[in-house]
Computed example of a mutant assay.
Amino acid sequence: MTHGAKPTGPTVEDLAPWFHNLHLPDGRQTRPDHPFGDFPAWKWAEIAPHLPADLTGARCLDIGCNSGFYSFELARRGATVVGIDINDHFLRQARWAAGHMGLEDRVSFENRAVYDYARLPREHFDIVLFMGVFYHLRYPMLALDTLRRLDPDLMVFQTLTTPDPDVDPRAMDDIGFQEREILDRPGWPRLAFIENALNADPTNWWVPNHAAVVGMLLAAAFRVTARPGAETYLCRPMAIHSGFWQPEEFQGATGLTDEPPGEP
């Protein structure tokens, strides 16, 4: 740049406010004063050891990518990454950051909702990140069923949860009408419905307990294989069979007529 020339393109400040604190190559950070600390770097530190160090040739999907932190980390390991979000402000940040990090050839960012993948031709992703999105969705089981249709090898699932950490031993039982008091016991799978707003955010709709997370994942034919951090679950697909997949209801909700994914 010649002396006195003005920099071109937007700056970090121009693109504020930021939610992800990105560490840029020149040493700047996009939100160094984040109330959660160095977020999401500390969350990535929990997950990273559970993912392959070399993702060359892998296709990854980052749902609710925000400004792209996780997408960039996967791309640095060699993956080709699609990041989706419904917030154009975050997508502008992500595309800007990809250019500054030299990763624009490995990552792409699209304005999509998770439900869009129920209407698109079926794709396969080796790894799906579904983090910080679940409790913002009005149709949570539809989202999980949609992701199972993609048949990922691994899904990293993270959601806000209630403090109830247990799973009632009868959670898988057939409960009779006269036993409904069981549904109020600690450890019974449940979603707390947010009627107005949570943390001043009206898009927060549900807060599940741990038992509900495990149960809903199971109902969508995902099994939890590890918990690398609080409220974070590593999931592998299970075989879809009667009791886990409801093809008629899914087809009615989406208009799809294709067959569910096969054996993992």
Rank of each mutant, 00 (worst) to 15 (best):
P25T: 02
D258F: 02
A192Q: 09
L15W: 01
L150R: 08
D164I: 03
L256E: 09
F19A: 02
P32D: 09
A58F: 14
G262E: 10
A200E: 14
T225L: 10
A75H: 07
G4Q: 13
T11M: 06
R190G: 03
L22C: 01
A219V: 02
R170Y: 02
L103N: 11
P49N: 10
P202R: 13
A192N: 05
G99E: 15
P40Q: 09
Y135S: 07
A253D: 12
R138M: 02
D126T: 09
T11C: 05
A79N: 07
D62K: 04
P165V: 08
D38T: 03
D62A: 07
H89L: 08
D33W: 02
D145H: 09
A253H: 12
A53I: 04
P165F: 04
R77K: 15
H23S: 05
M131Y: 04
N111R: 15
R180H: 13
R112H: 11
I240C: 14
V156K: 05
F177A: 10
V128P: 00
E104Q: 15
A79K: 08
A5E: 13
F177E: 07
P140I: 08
E179N: 11
A97V: 02
A58E: 08
K43H: 10
H50I: 03
L24K: 02
D126N: 15
W96R: 03
E13F: 00
D126Q: 15
F222W: 07
Y233Q: 03
